[in-house]
Structure formats: structure tokens, C-alpha cells
């Protein structure tokens, strides 16, 4: 099948690439753009390891074709830290030991970014439901919940730190 040319912006950088229509977005990001922080953990849209932001919304990049991404803006885990500074969520995951093997972590963080964007002060239950599309096998989620709470608190204290990502 003929390839199509797409242009996408990822972490602020524009890329124009030729892709087969069937190429999954997650493969495009990992293989074509060599951004391997976005992971693949299942084949049934269940695990959330491939979660990225599309125009500020968290999506599972395994369940979208790269051709659908034409013209859209994405943020992956590689674009979360700004100017050498951790995002409050990255900091929260480190401070609260919200990661172990690190495989689900990028997807968790990308999901949590949108969660806090929409609900800056979530309850524990809202956090748990909010990350229910992301599986973690190591942490038992307790410290992930704490990491999100840590970030919520930090972002409430310094609202200016929150901006950059959501503008993409």
C-alpha cells in the first residue's frame, strides 16, 4: 500500500515522515522518531504503557494510526521535563517512590498530567479511577497515588509550573 506523508509536532519539534497507513502511532514514535520512552505492554489497549498527550489529552498511542496524527501536537515523556527541571509529577514519582521497574512510569506520568490538568485537587479515589487505564505490576499503586498527590500540592503552591505542557 502506498505510503502517506504526515507532519506531526512532538515535544515542540515538527517531523515530516512517510508512513504506511497501518503503522501504529506508538511504532511511529518509537521507531521513526526514536523516542523509546513510550512503551508497549499489551495488544489490547489495556495497559496504558503507551500513553502520550495529543493536543493535551492523554491517549493510548497503540490504538491510533500514525496517519491519524497528521497535523497534531504530541507530548511524550521525553518532553515533560522543561529547561532541565523535572515536572512536579516526575519529582513526585521520585520523592514518593512511585516507580520501580520504570516500564509503566512514562505512561502513568503522561496520564497523570492530564488528570491534574482537569482536576488539580483530586481525591484519592479520583486519582485511582483516573489512572485506571494504566497497569503497574511493581508498586501496588499506593506510591503512585502519593506521587500524584505530591504533584497536585506542588502545582497548587506554584501554579506557574503547570503551564507549559498543556499548551502543546
Amino acid at each position: 500500500m502506498s505510503k502517506q506523508t504526515i507532519t506531526v509536532t512532538v515535544n515542540g519539534e515538527a517531523y515530516t515522515e512517510e508512513v504506511e497507513p497501518r503503522m501504529l502511532l506508538v511504532h511511529f514514535i518509537r521507531e521513526k522518531l526514536s523516542l523509546t520512552g513510550t512503551h508497549i505492554g499489551c495488544d489490547s489497549t489495556s495497559c496504558g504503557a503507551c500513553t502520550i498527550l495529543m493536543d493535551g489529552k492523554s491517549i493510548k498511542s497503540c490504538t491510533m494510526f500514525a496517519v491519524q496524527a497528521n497535523g497534531k501536537h504530541f507530548t511524550t515523556i521525553e518532553g515533560v521535563a522543561q529547561n532541565g527541571q523535572y515536572h512536579p509529577l516526575q519529582e513526585g514519582f521520585k520523592e514518593e517512590h512511585g516507580l520501580q521497574c520504570g516500564f509503566c512510569t512514562p505512561g502513568m506520568i503522561m496520564r497523570a498530567i492530564e488528570l491534574l490538568d482537569k482536576n488539580p485537587n483530586p481525591t484519592e479515589e479520583e486519582i485511582r479511577w483516573g489512572i485506571s487505564g494504566n497497569l503497574c505490576r511493581c508498586t501496588g499503586y499506593v506510591n503512585i497515588v502519593k506521587a500524584v498527590q505530591y504533584a497536585a500540592k506542588k502545582m497548587a503552591e506554584a501554579p506557574k509550573e503547570k503551564g507549559a505542557l498543556n499548551e502543546v
Binding site: R30, G37, T38, H39, T76, A81, Y86, K94, L99, G102
Partner: peptide, 13 residues
């Protein structure tokens, strides 16, 4: 943590 938090872990794939 530093590498995992920034998508710089190096897994087999």
C-alpha cells in the same frame, strides 16, 4: 529513577 522518569530507560526493545 532519573532515567526512568525521563523516558531514558534502556529496555531490550
Amino acid at each position: 529513577d532519573a532515567r526512568f522518569l525521563q523516558g531514558k530507560g534502556q529496555y531490550t526493545d
